[in-house]
């Protein structure tokens, strides 16, 4: 029979899965709005979900605080709870960035042409994919599943850098493209940040499972090989 403490940990895990799914939905919605014409109703849905994410983020902090104070967790429990607090924070940021993407997307004129021209759709879909994979990685607490995320993040970062480079070159020769181009660069930076947050989550899962801190110190390739 599960102890009271184990039930608390299970509860914490299910709330993180829930907030992760909400953020995944936000990214998916933001990508949809970016790639299609914006519609006001979708903007409202995304804002409503953001409020839910914020509430769950606070709830996770409260649960973790209570576990630290009352249960004094050690070893893998300690690592899981430390990671839970960080992961919740990362997820909340993913939600915020999704909203920012929607806001910026509205200011891009001739969006379809630009998206086609700079292969933005591929990048956006990859970002959608990395959020799904990150949620699965957390749910399964599989330290081996993190490698795929590190590789995907590297691809996304490279694609974003290439696209931004091309957009800047376009802006240099075509002053009419400056406003939309700048907004598109910001959107790409947001997409890149979402991917980075997913990587951070994968690093916390890795830490929980393997008791090893891998953030900061290694390239994505090396991390993927771990």
């Amino acid at each position: 029979m599960a102890t009271h403490f184990e039930m608390e940990l299970d509860n914490l895990k299910s709330i993180i899965k829930k907030i992760g799914k909400l953020a995944e939905g936000q990214v998916s919605e933001a990508v949809k709005i970016l790639l299609q014409e914006p519609e006001a109703a979708e903007g409202k849905i995304i804002k409503k979900t953001e409020n839910k994410i914020d509430k769950l983020d606070i709830k996770i902090d409260e649960i973790c605080q209570s576990i630290f104070a009352l249960q004094q967790p050690v070893a893998s429990d300690l690592r899981f709870i430390m990671s839970a607090m960080q992961i919740s924070n990362e997820i909340e940021r993913i939600g915020d960035l999704s909203i920012s993407i929607v806001k910026k997307a509205k200011n891009i004129k001739e969006k379809h042409d630009l998206i086609l021209k700079f292969d933005i759709a591929d990048i956006a879909r990859q970002v959608e994919l990395i959020t799904v994979k990150t949620n699965n990685c957390f749910a399964s607490q599989d330290g081996n599943a993190t490698g795929v995320i590190f590789v995907l993040n590297k691809d996304i970062r490279n694609s974003c850098e290439d696209a931004i480079h091309d957009i800047i070159n376009e802006m240099k020769v075509n002053s009419k493209a400056v406003v939309s181009g700048t907004n598109l660069v910001i959107v790409l930076k947001h997409l890149e940040r979402i991917s980075e947050h997913c990587t951070n989550i994968a690093e916390y899962v890795y830490f929980t499972v393997n008791a090893k801190i891998i953030k900061h110190d290694k390239s994505d390739d090396l991390k993927a090989e771990e």
């Binding site: 102890t3 050690v74 070893a75 429990d77 300690l78 008791a211």
Partner: peptide
């Protein structure tokens, strides 16, 4: 020992399982 014990029995004992 209290953050990353090597042996499963140690982990089980210190985490109360």
């Amino acid at each position: 020992i209290f953050t990353k014990p090597v042996q499963k029995q140690t982990e089980d004992y210190i985490t109360g399982r």
